[in-house]
Design a protein around this nucleic acid. Structure first.
Lengths: 214, 214
DNA sequence: AATTTTCTCCCTGTTTTCGGGGAGGTTTAG
DNA sequence: CTAAACCTCCCCGAAAACAGGGAGAAAATT
C-alpha cells in the first residue's frame, strides 16, 4: 500500500518542523510539503494532489477553515484535518458543516494524532473527546463546559450582535436590515440583558470570543 | 563536554512532542523533561536543575514571562529561552529587563533554534532579526513585516484601549487609572483617530484581533 | 537646544447609548 | 389551543459617547 500523502499548513515554521518529524515516524504517512503562508498554500496545493490536508486554524490572512473551504471547491475528495489551539463551539460546528474529517487540539499528544490520521485515511472521521463533548451540548453541560452563551440568543439577535461587533452603528444596522432604529435598540437591550453586559464593548468581546466575527 | 540539559514548558502537548524531536537532533543538547502546565513546572523544575529553560509565552494560568521571573528568583543562573507566537514590543522589553537569554518566534525555523541554543549555552544571548528590529523601532519597517496597528499607539493609549476592550466604562477606567474622565475621553478620541474607527465596537475589535485582550 | 510627542485636563455641543417601561402581531412549543 | 418566545416599534429620561477644539507640563527625539 502506498503512503498517504500529507500537506501541512501552519504559519509557524517551528511547528511545521516539529509536526513533520512526528508524521515521519507514523508508518503509512508521508509529508510531501508544507506551507507557512495560507495564501501560497491555496495556490499551490492543487498541484500536489495530497490525500490529506492538515491545516492550522489560527493563521493570518486566511484562517484554516476558509482555506479548507476554498480548496474543497477545487478538490472535493480532499481529506482535511483541522489543528487548533482552543476549543470553540462555533468553529467546531462550522468545521463539521464543511465536512472536515478531523478536529485536533494542539494540546493532544502524538498518539492521538496518529489515531486521527489513520482514521481519516480510511475515510473515517476523528473528533477528540472534548470536541464531541462540545457538540452534544444538549446533554447536561449544566455546570461544566457550559456551551456558548450565544445559544440563548434568537436568530435575529445573533444577526444584530454580529453587525454590532463589526462596528456598525445602530443606524447603519437599521438601514442594512431595513428596520427602525428603535428595533435595533430593543435587540441591543435584549442582547445586553441575556449576555449580562452593559455596554457595546462587552457585546463585541463576547461576539469575538465566540467566533461570531473575525 | 556534557550535554546542556533543557527543560521545556508549553501548554500544547503536540508542540512539546515536535520540539523535543528537533532538540534531539541538535548535538550537545538534551531534553530532560517537559511540562504542559506552567504551575506544575514552577514547582518541579528546581529539582531538575536544568541549564536551559525553554518556555512558551502564551499559556493559561501563568504566562511564560511570569514563570521565568519566579524561577529566576530561585535559580538565578538559569538560562532562559522564550518562545512566542507574535511579536509585541511590550513583551520584548519586559523579557529583556528580566534577562531572558533568547527570544524566539515560532515562525522561525529549526536552524535558528539551533543557533539560539548554542549561543545561550555559551552564555551569549540570541535575539532574531525581527526582535531587534522591534527594539530599534526607529527603523521604519516600511512595507515588509509591517507590524500591528497598535505600534502607532503610545503606552498610555494601549493601556486605555485594553481597558475599553475589557468592557470597562470611561468612568471605571478613569477610577482605575486615577485620572479624570476627560483624560480618558481624550485618549479614546486619539485611539479612534489613530486606528481609524468611530465607535468603541471598532476599538474592541482591533484590540481583540491584535491580541491585546482575551 | 529645539522640536515633537505624550499626557493630562478643560470647554462646547450633538448624537448615541442605556435602562425602564409598553404594545401589537407572529411564530414556536407544550 | 394556549402560553411563551420572538419580532417589530414606540415612549421617556439620564448617562455616556462622539466630534471639534484648546492648552500647559513633562518626556522623548532630533
Amino acid at each position: 500500500m502506498e503512503n498517504s500523502r500529507i500537506v501541512l499548513v501552519d504559519d509557524h515554521q517551528l511547528i511545521i518542523d516539529g509536526l513533520s518529524r512526528i508524521i515521519q515516524e507514523i508508518p503509512g504517512f508521508e509529508l510531501v510539503t508544507s506551507y507557512h503562508d495560507p495564501l501560497e498554500a491555496l495556490q499551490k496545493i492543487p498541484v500536489w494532489k495530497p490525500e490529506i490536508l492538515m491545516v492550522d486554524f489560527e493563521m493570518p490572512g486566511l484562517n484554516g477553515l476558509e482555506l479548507i473551504r476554498k480548496l474543497k471547491q477545487q478538490i472535493p475528495e480532499l481529506k482535511t484535518v483541522l489543528l487548533t489551539m482552543h476549543l470553540d463551539q462555533a468553529t467546531v460546528k462550522e468545521a463539521l458543516s464543511l465536512g472536515v474529517n478531523a478536529y485536533i487540539l494542539k494540546n493532544l499528544d502524538e498518539f492521538e494524532l496518529r489515531v486521527a490520521l489513520e482514521k481519516v485515511s480510511k475515510g473515517q472521521n476523528y473528533y477528540s473527546a472534548p470536541v464531541t463533548e462540545v457538540l452534544n451540548s444538549k446533554s447536561k453541560s449544566i455546570q461544566k463546559s457550559s456551551n456558548s452563551q450565544l445559544d440563548l440568543l434568537s436568530g435575529r439577535e445573533r444577526e444584530v450582535l454580529k453587525l454590532i461587533a463589526e462596528a456598525f452603528s445602530t443606524k447603519e444596522i437599521a438601514d442594512q436590515l431595513s428596520l427602525e432604529i428603535s428595533t435595533i435598540e430593543t435587540h441591543r437591550k435584549s442582547l445586553m440583558r441575556k449576555l449580562d453586559v452593559h455596554n457595546v464593548a462587552g457585546l463585541v468581546r463576547i461576539a469575538v470570543q465566540e467566533g461570531l466575527v473575525s
